[in-house]
Design a protein around this nucleic acid. Structure first.
Length: 433
RNA sequence: GGAGAGGUGGCCGAGUGGUCGAAGGCGCACGCCUGCUAAGCGUGUGUAGGGGUAACACUCUACCGAGGGUUCGAAUCCCUCCCUCUCCGCCA
């Protein structure tokens, strides 16, 4: 959510900035008109309440019963005007709030202006794609041959876009989770959190998934609890309505959760393999920082994500999103993409964003700049570190051998009981007849 | 799921219809005192939104888990919901 005061004070600058992310200037004019109407209504209501308050206090001081009765009788009508004013305020507040929640974040001034993903900027490419003496195979072939990915049974059990991981494949994923968590905790200064994977509605409003993007989410209708699309949601909302004491920021958390996404918008896209499922695992980094630190923290966050790629020794590149391709909540965003030689594409494995005070305003997360200073909104940031299935894809396709076996990256071997290779029949043992 | 008890300021805790944003205590901040430490004394100590000011001052409104209701007036009375705790049941 944007600061309404800022919109009031510099409407032209806000309109210009929002135009680059596709918001019509007229929308801001509508909002400002609504804001003026709302404030006038609030003023009216408060005036009425002040009058009634004074009258009521006077009644309290009256000793004479008859006088008292007379005063009560004359004040009796005041409630009607207040009720009418209250109704008006509530209606205007609701409309105002609804609009505010649907306005995207302002892009950071340093973000390149552009219309869509074609204007994104490749910031750097690290490492060289491996050269194979044979045609590298895509992970769905490798996975099925090795018996570690089972698409047929995944669909049987849960439907399309679900799969099973088996044997050493399942162990590989588990090793990645543990290794990445340890890396971020031990080397990058994060503290680990294991949050709920189901949250209340207001958490999703807080991070910006609602009200606009509800059709990408699963929920339990009976209790109105929602399955998280990312650990960002519970971890950010941990501190909802809280004020960090002076000196405790930055707070950096890393969390592993399963993530659930309906993927309605991507119907028909990426249907092969494990690139895009309704359920996937992810290790997520979330930061709460002082505003002056957030630009630098974004670069550190990005480097922490890239470090995972470097240590896996898989080539990656960093892409900066242009204004037109920023997410609803992000002021600045970098994607980290791993090279997958089998399917021949760069896979988005992390998205590192600085939200500045946008989520903090929605979740009411603040800090005190100094011990007795007024609370101010924190800046929040987050980034994947990394998204699991796509890392598994990159590992399988990068480390494959001509015979279809796959070597295990050195950093993961200690997490897999010293195993160095995934061979055929590492997963499925039993055969149907 | 059943029965019961609760949710008040950073914390503890009073407050059952009237000037209560809320006693008292702790904590904290500043000042005084003190040869050091401790103790002591004094003052102050919420958030948000309006009005007001050059800026202060000042002032209004809201907030005692949340939302409704009763009333001239609600932390206090009524209703609904949420959360916590205890016991029982059930389970991992």
């Amino acid at each position: 959510m944007l600061d309404i005061r800022r919109i009031r004070e510099e409407p032209d600058a806000v309109k210009a900035a929002l135009a680059t992310v596709g918001v019509e200037p007229a929308e801001i004019d509508t909002l400002l008109a609504l804001d003026a109407e709302r404030r006038a209504a609030i003023h009216e209501l408060e005036t009425r309440k002040a009058e009634r308050g004074a009258a009521s206090r006077a009644i309290g001081a009256l000793k004479d019963a008859a006088e008292r009765e007379r005063a009560i009788a004359t004040t009796r009508g005041a409630g009607d005007a207040i009720a009418a004013a209250e109704e008006r305020v509530a209606a205007l507040e609701a409309r105002f709030e609804a609009r505010m929640l649907e306005i995207p974040n302002l892009p950071h001034p340093d973000v390149p202006v552009g219309a869509d993903e074609r204007d994104n900027v490749v910031v750097r490419t690290v490492g060289t794609p491996p050269v194979f003496a044979f045609t590298p195979r895509p992970h769905w072939e490798l996975g099925e041959t090795l018996g570690i990915l089972d698409f047929e049974r995944g669909a049987k059990v849960s439907g399309s876009r679900f799969y099973l991981m088996r044997g050493v494949g399942a162990a590989l994923q588990r090793a990645l989770i543990n290794w990445m968590l340890d890396l971020h905790v031990r080397e990058h200064g994060y503290s680990e959190v294991y949050p709920p994977a189901m949250v209340r509605r207001e958490c999703l409003v807080g991070t910006g998934n609602l009200p606009k993007f509800g059709d990408n989410l699963y929920r339990d209708a009976e209790d109105d609890v929602w399955f998280v699309p990312t650990a960002e949601v519970p971890v950010t909302n941990m501190y909802r309505d809280e004020i960090f004491a002076a000196g405790v920021l930055p707070v950096r958390h890393v969390a592993y959760t399963p993530c659930f996404r309906r993927e309605k918008m991507s119907a028909g896209r990426d249907v092969r393999g494990i690139k895009r499922g309704h359920q996937f695992d992810k290790v997520e980094m979330v930061k709460f920082v002082e505003p002056a630190a957030s630009d630098g923290e974004l670069l550190r966050l990005l480097d922490d994500a890239e470090d995972v790629c470097r240590r896996l020794q898989i080539p990656h590149r960093v892409v900066q999103m242009c204004t037109g391709d920023l997410s609803f909540v992000a002021a600045m965003k970098y994607d980290v993409e791993l090279w997958a030689p089998g399917c021949g594409e760069w896979l988005e494995v992390s998205s590192c964003s600085n939200f500045r005070d946008f989520q903090a305003r929605r979740t009411n997360i603040r800090y005190r700049p100094a011990p007795r200073a007024k609370p101010e909104l924190v800046h929040t940031l987050n980034g994947s570190g990394l998204a699991l299935p796509r890392v598994v894809i990159a590992v399988l396709e990068t480390y494959q051998e001509a015979d279809g076996s796959v070597r295990i990256p050195a950093v993961l071997q200690p997490y897999m009981g010293g195993r160095a290779v995934i061979e055929k029949s590492s997963g499925e043992k039993e055969r149907r007849s």
